[in-house]
Write a protein that binds this DNA or RNA. Structure first.
Lengths: 145, 145
DNA sequence: CTCAGTGCAAACGATTTGCAGGGCC
DNA sequence: GGCCCTGCAAATCGTTTGCACTGAG
């Protein structure tokens, strides 16, 4: 795989991004530095590079895919209110480790997990014990950003 | 909320479906019994009914949304090869229970989790110890069915 | 009469693809 | 010259919406 300027920029931008941008967000940021880059190129390269293991697609709920500059797996927290995705502290990674190798004949190859949160900025002014408790599996549909 | 024939059928079909169909799949099945039903109605009612707590949207990876006739939460297994979604045995539900109430200031409101498998039918003839081990977070993109 | 619910077609947003260059070994 | 990669525009896919219509209260 050739390291084109576009690819270099994409990795750079993705690695240095503290958040986990969508293709579109990434595209917007890249345009500042490479105005003629196209969204299709961003998509194509995100795909290629995640296939190559250079970056990771974040496979999780939400209507827009997000990407992660770090190739090594770690847990994410998603804000159910604004859709932002953040890295979770490493200690939490070990939580679901007791999975059997096989369940009802189906070969277990892994798992996905995501912690749902209301992030600090969405949580502004909300008293510590409020509603928004019964989210979990609903209310996190398509709202990104 | 009115219990229209369409809604009745949707719940019925969903409750009796062993799998967790997408809106489109459900629509195909419903057409057999109610030929003039429209896909929009299916989508609309799935939305309404999941809001009402009668059914559940499965919020998880994959490009197509799936629905679950059971209103009570439980763990799912997704086949990374064919996209099929199955219920996991209940015992597994307790696995990720040790989440703190708050992480780095973000209020924890829940989590999502999904077990990735290669289902029995996709696994036909594959010797027990094969490749397909390093999937996890890739390869489960858009292939449903 | 009103109003919730419907079917249809069109709109939509995210992603993918076809195609005509362009640059590099 | 062949090939990989790009930009652009158009296509596609899942889902949502606008609208006119219907049927029950």
């Amino acid at each position: 795989m050739v390291l084109t300027p576009q690819r270099e920029l994409i990795i750079q931008e993705l690695r240095s991004a503290r958040d986990h941008p969508t293709a579109e967000e990434l595209y917007q940021r890249l345009k500042a530095r490479l105005p003629r880059i196209s969204l299709a190129t961003v998509y194509r390269n995100l795909e290629t590079m995640s296939r190559a293991g250079l970056i990771r697609k974040i496979e999780a709920a939400g209507s827009q895919r997000r990407f992660d500059g770090s190739p090594c797996p770690h847990l994410h927290m998603r804000c159910v209110s604004c859709g932002r995705v953040m890295d979770a502290p490493l200690e939490l990674l070990e939580i679901p480790s007791g999975l059997p190798k096989e369940i009802q004949g189906h070969l277990v190859v892994g798992h996905t997990m995501e912690i749902l949160v209301i992030c600090t900025s969405c949580n502004k002014g909300v008293p510590p014990k409020s509603k928004a408790q019964e989210v979990k599996g609903d209310g996190l549909e398509g709202k990104q950003n």
